[in-house]
Design a protein around this nucleic acid. Structure first.
Length: 199
DNA sequence: AAGTAACA
DNA sequence: CTAT
């Protein structure tokens, strides 16, 4: 049974080491076709996390705000979502519907992500699946509205967090990673995948 | 505010 | 340094 924090279901080490390695190998191909980039916020600040996407849409941000785009900023379509990620999605959600977007976030040693909601999708009844690979990340879970108390948990490589039901619109973020805590990624750092149904 | 800084 |  998964841990439950404010309705967020956290499946610890649901992926064993070989499964993590296989997923990373598939993600290498995605990054080769759709290179990582650092989006800018509406206020012109570059995010510390580098990202790319796979699937029908990719998440994007610039001076116009947050949105999903059908193409990488370089102009090409996003690569397909890797089979291992789709298999995990169908296994954990029980849904026949595939996600439209697999956002790939790469956290270097000093990367962070402030508290935010995933609310650029059309229908919040679909869950969001978040997969951690590589170094540990300190995950903070807040409330639907900004402010108030929060709870934190260290996410490790192979952990999967599901934002589902009433927890779907909770604020969440990564305070920091723990550099060198995993040997999964040759260059270190942390990869987080978030799969969403967009349309 | 998917950001940053100040302060305890 | 970490937590808020």
């Amino acid at each position: 049974m998964p841990l439950n924090i404010r309705g967020v279901e956290i499946h610890q080490h649901i992926l064993d080491r070989p499964a993590q390695e296989a997923m990373v190998e598939e993600l290498r191909a995605v990054q080769a076709a759709a290179p990582l980039f650092s989006p800018k916020t509406r206020w012109g600040k570059e995010m510390s996390v580098r990202m790319t996407s796979a699937g029908k849409y990719g998440w994007y941000s610039d001076a116009r705000g947050y949105r999903y785009e059908a193409r990488h900023p370089d102009g090409g379509a996003w690569p397909p979502i890797p089979p291992s990620v789709l298999a995990l999605w169908h296994d954990l959600t029980g849904l026949a519907r595939a996600p439209d977007c697999c956002l790939i976030n790469y956290y270097g040693e000093t990367a962070r992500m402030g508290l935010h909601q995933d609310r650029d999708e059309a229908d919040f009844t679909w869950p969001v699946m978040s997969v951690s690979l590589g170094d540990d990340g300190l995950f903070r879970i807040g409330n639907e509205a900004r402010g108030g108390k929060t709870e934190s948990i260290w996410l490790a490589s192979g952990d999967v967090a599901m934002l589902t039901g009433a927890s779907r619109l909770l604020h969440h973020g990564i305070d920091r990673i723990r550099p060198g805590s995993s040997t999964l990624l040759a260059r270190g750092g942390r990869i987080n995948l978030t799969c969403r149904v967009v349309d």
